[in-house]
Amino acid sequence: MAASSTIPSALPSSSAADDVAKLTATAAATEEAEARAEAYERTHVHGVYEAIAPHFSATRYKPWPAVASFLRAQPPGAVGFDVGCGNGKYLGLNPTVFMVGSDRSPSLIALARSRTKQLQRHQGSKARDQADGAAWEGTGGEGGGGAGPSEVIVADGLSLPFRECAADFVICVAVIHHMSTRARRQEAIRQLLQCVKAGEAGQPGGQVLVYVWALEQSSSRRGWDEGGEQDLLVPWVLKSQQSQQAKAPKETRDQDTAGAAASNKSGEEPPASGGAAAAGLDATQSGAAIGQADPVFQRYYHLYRKGELEEDVLAAGGIVVSSGYERDNWWVVATNEPLGHGQPEAEI
């Protein structure tokens, strides 16, 4: 049983909103679809992360190996942005680069700030590995040398305040699949590409690493696969301390930080649902059957099918450097056309 609900047609699913934009190409219709998509994401993405921030953050501390190696491969002194940084688990990971993380959720950014301040305080200290505690195990301290300098800001991925062409690299992990129309997803990638340096003769441009959830997850228990519905609401069960202890370990392990190593390797997994969680579409509450009154929050996801992420990069005016699949996710490294080859037009 898939722990998810298909969005009813009354809601602006990706295809519905895309169709509106295509069929009635008037500015008014596009604007209306855009406003609906925004309102929808407010309820099913932004509102959810605000509400679950501390709980979500406690389950997000392990960097994905491929993201970590992308960051470690950056040259000393590089400047990078992490768009949709959440609790900031990638900030400071490479001690020789400066990173600025942004996120739409003020609550997650407040958590990220206290975390990066703590890492900085331990910079160079031998005790920092112990002092950081298990909750941040594996970030920042690997390879010695302490944490790199970093910063966090609150910003929307579709209205980024970054100086254009200023970054050596950008990462955007598990973010773009929360945008509810294809136009918005492509615009998000366009804005990431505008952040990085353009390539010049003999010098490659800055690289953008994007990770999104895959539709093809045949090996996961969620049961999603090729040909299935791509636009879903995925429940997040906000378990209280008490009910977490009362639950059988098998059912709670996805959210349980102590047991997260086994199930949380991909870094972006929804909680295992007890089935009843899938029934409700209300973002506030629907989980009476789980525990006592554990609230269930429905997050919107667009599950990317094979090849779709590369298509979106091209539509955003970028070029694909490399791409692949890792643990239920598609990823791509993208860059801009080198100067002199016709810059992608920035019509917004």
């Binding site: 400066f98 910063e151 910003a155 209205s159 305040p161 100086r163």
Partner: peptide
């Protein structure tokens, strides 16, 4: 916020970027 960070930030309004 560090002064270093300010060096990489601009206005978020699209029409201001140019």
């Amino acid at each position: 916020m560090k002064v270093l960070t300010l060096n990489f930030l601009t206005c978020a309004v699209k029409t201001c970027k140019a």
